[in-house]
Each structure stands twice: as structure tokens, then as C-alpha cells.
Design a protein around this nucleic acid. Structure first.
Lengths: 244, 244
DNA sequence: ACCGTTCCACGAACATCGTTCGCTGTCAAC
DNA sequence: GTTGACAGCGAACGATGTTCGTGGAACGGT
């Protein structure tokens, strides 16, 4: 499983014993090409459409050919996730405006995840330890330390914020999940859910029913407002927890 | 997909056209028995071990027999999730100690999820709309309203809190995930991760390295402290956001 | 210029998954 | 007593991740 542990920071060679006596000629396939193809499929059809055979076909071959460059599907998805993590620009911490810096960073991270369909799903059950993810983590921690937060708050808080960004991006992608990934289907599901809530017995769910407007905003317009709300709540809580 | 929308609150009959001319004699199989068997398998081997054939075998038959009572694996998992959601005791809101009530409720939810291995994984990509989940949601909303939070804060906040509980329970179960679900393997992975972080170049990851003790506590002892921290941060932020 | 080694590419195959199909036996309704 | 609906269930289908064995091309040594 965790084959990356202890390996150097740069993308590690797959076969440790391969001394590569040969100067590694450029063949048609490569790790980067495979990752790019997988990302292309994710952008077009979502993470569930990523299949070894599908990626191979995208590169003009079969699924078995990928195993020469990649250990398996798990590692492939991890590579894709870390690849897009590299798209986030790094930040040099400025103690005077660290909060807005941190928020901006998380906003960008969230936006990038959302721009790749349900890519966030990959990061849900994982501890991201790819090189780019680590750079992002270091960046986040540095900004939080510039804010003079307690070490314990930074340690727990960074995890909390990272989980929030990933989870929020994934939840936002659920509305267009499943097979019919069209925005119309998402809105249809949204409406169906709203009518379902409205049909509940008012005597047993009084609070729920009275809060339907607050619980369900427009699924697309509301996504950013919702994310911003969580961001504000989390940072408010973190600084409140740290001071004193 | 969302076949439950619009159906009555009690567990809906699977086949809408089945008028049940026969008074539904008690056969060996039943929805409840299937759900119980699935939960048993989850407790013993985790969610990934839940297979139609495995559940059938658990009940002394094959996998195909389940489809007479259940639409498919997706619905089965949803039923299991909602079943354990029924274990959480409901709360009558007390405005004077609503915060501790809310915390206690989320603590119990978290504990129940954690007690069923990686069951939380099921709830990650779903909007829980089962009957028991709805009762829990109503309960949560009522307590928050007793705290006189703004409606908007309740609406967004309830989602935030629910996602936190589920996500936190799942993350906690990752340490013992994979195949070798033993606690020793979890600790081994934890140690491996720590040495990996320690091996990073100190000139490029100064903050990360200096925060290793804060980032990684003991995986088991630390889980509750970590959860409590997030709870405190979230509630702090929510009330701060609501007051003015 | 030749050969041998190395290793990528790839079709076929294996195990496993969710699900469907068609048959059988049984029990309730007429 | 007859009939018909339906739970139960083995077999099968399509798709998945992964492994195996073969082939062939490119490089280094001679």
C-alpha cells in the first residue's frame, strides 16, 4: 500500500531495482501521459469512468500496458490528485493579512477541485502525501504560523481545513453525480428532494420543514456562498480557540 | 436512483405495484434480516467486504435471492446507514444548555459511527434521507433553534456539522482500513507516515517538520481529542457568526 | 556489423463484482 | 382442487482490476 513512504520527494521510480542501464528512451507511454489521460477522462466523465481499459484506450492501447509504468489504479488516482494539487500557486506568508491569505488559498484549492468534476472524491479516504500536496500543506501551515496560532491549533486545524475543502468540493459535485452528469439532472434531483422534504408530516418535523428554505439554496449559486460560510465559521473558531 | 423521494416516511415497500394479495407470509429472508446481516459483515470485515454473495451466504443462500427484497447494493447500504442512525437517542431541546446538548448529540453520533468500523464511508457521498436520519436531523435543527441561531446559520451549520461528524468518523477509520484491518497495522502505518515526514528536506518543509508532533498524535488516543477540537471550533464559529 | 539482453507493449485469461434470467417449488386465493 | 403469483436460487452476463506469457524493438558489448 503506502509504497511512497520513505522515498525521495521527486516522483519516485516505480521499480526500485531498475538501475536503468538504458537511458530510458521515450516510448509512447509514460507516467505523465497516463496521468494526463486519466485527468482528461475525469474532466469528461467523472472519476467513476476511470478504468484501466478506458485509460489505455485513451492512449491507443489496452489496459494491461499501464502496469509497466504504474502500480495500479490506486496509485494512478493518487498521482492525478497530486498533479492537480500542483496547480495551486504557493503563497509567501504575510503576518498582517494571514487570514485573507489562508482563505484565498483554500478558495483556490476548492475552485480547482470543483473544476475537475468529482476529482475530490479521490482525496476523501487518503492522506495526501504526494510532493505537490506536501508543498500545499507546508504553505498552509506557514500561513497559519504567521498568524501566531498555537501549534496544537495549527496541527488540528490544518487537518480540519483540508478535510473541509475536500469534503465540500465533493459534496458540491454530488448534485451532478451518477450517470446522467448533466446540470439539469442535478437541478431535478434538487427539486425532488425539496418536494420530498415538504411532504413530510409537519407534526413530527416542524423545525425541518420551517428551515427548508435555509437548508436548500440553489444548488449551483449557493455552492460558493455555502463554502464561504464554512470558511468563515472555521477560521472564526480557530482564532477564537487560539487566543487564550 | 433517488427512489425514496416522495414516498411515505415509514420504510417504503420496494415494489409499488405489489398490492400484496397475500398477507406477506414470513419467509426466511426479509429486509430486516438482510440489513442485520450486512451490518454484521461490516462490523467484522468492513464496508468493502459487503458483497451481495457474501450477504446471501451469511443468510444461507446466494446473492441473487436478495433482489426480491432489495433494489440493489446501493439501497442496502442506505438502509444499513439509516438503521444505525436509529440508535442515536433523541433529545428534547433545553435552551439553557443547548450547546452542550448539541455537542453531546454529535458525540454520540460520532461514537456510534466509529463503533461500526468504516460504516461512515456509506454516508459520505449521500444526502441521508432515511426515516431515522431525518429524525436525527430534526433533532439537531431543533436544538440549534433553541440556541436562537439565525436561520441561515442553522441551515448551513447543520450541513457543516453533519459532514464533520461523518467525515471525522471515516477519517478515523482509515488507519485500520485496507485489508489488514488490525490495530497493529494502523499503528505501523502511522509510524511509517511519521518517519516519512521526518525524512523530508528541512529546507523546503520547515514548518511541516517543526509541526510533526502537533500534526500526528497517537492515532487512537488522539481521535477523541481531535474530534472534540473540531467540535469546539465549529460551535465557536457558529455562535460567533450568528451573534451579529 | 552482429548478437544478446533488457524491458515495454499487448492480447488473453483469471477472479470477483453487481445484476438479470429462467426455472422450481410452495402457499394463498378462488 | 385448481391455479397463479412469487420467494428462492443456480447459472450466466457484462464489467472490473490485475497477472501471465509472448513478441518485438532498441540499446550495449564485442
Amino acid at each position: 500500500m503506502f509504497a511512497m513512504a520513505g522515498e525521495p520527494l521527486t516522483v519516485p521510480p516505480r521499480r526500485p531495482g531498475a538501475k536503468s542501464r538504458r537511458p530510458r528512451v521515450e516510448r509512447t507511454l509514460s507516467r505523465d501521459a497516463i496521468v494526463a489521460a486519466a485527468l482528461r477522462v475525469i474532466d469528461e466523465e467523472g472519476v467513476d469512468a476511470v478504468t484501466m481499459r478506458r485509460i489505455g484506450q485513451e492512449l491507443g492501447t489496452g489496459g494491461a500496458s499501464l502496469y509497466a509504468h504504474i502500480d495500479g489504479k490506486d496509485e494512478l488516482l493518487e498521482l492525478v490528485f497530486d498533479h492537480v494539487a500542483g496547480e495551486i500557486p504557493v503563497i509567501t506568508p504575510d503576518p498582517r493579512r494571514w487570514q485573507e491569505q489562508l482563505k484565498d488559498y483554500l478558495r483556490q484549492w476548492h475552485a480547482i477541485l470543483r473544476s475537475h468534476r468529482d476529482l475530490a472524491k479521490i482525496g476523501l479516504g487518503r492522506v495526501p502525501i504526494g510532493p505537490n500536496s506536501l508543498v500545499g500543506m507546508e504553505c498552509m501551515l506557514a500561513v497559519m504560523r504567521a498568524g501566531k496560532l498555537d501549534d496544537a491549533v495549527i496541527g488540528y486545524g490544518a487537518d480540519l481545513l483540508a478535510a473541509y475543502v475536500t469534503g465540500s468540493a465533493y459534496e458540491g459535485s454530488i448534485w451532478m453525480s451518477g450517470k446522467a452528469a448533466t446540470p439539469e439532472a442535478g437541478e431535478a434531483y434538487h427539486r425532488e428532494l425539496e418536494t420530498y422534504f415538504s411532504s413530510l408530516p409537519a407534526d413530527r418535523f416542524p423545525t425541518l420543514i420551517s428551515l427548508i428554505p435555509a437548508l436548500m439554496g440553489d444548488p449551483v449559486d449557493d455552492a460558493d456562498v455555502r463554502f464561504e460560510f464554512g470558511l468563515d465559521v472555521l477560521l472564526r473558531g480557530l482564532v477564537g480557540r487560539s487566543k487564550r
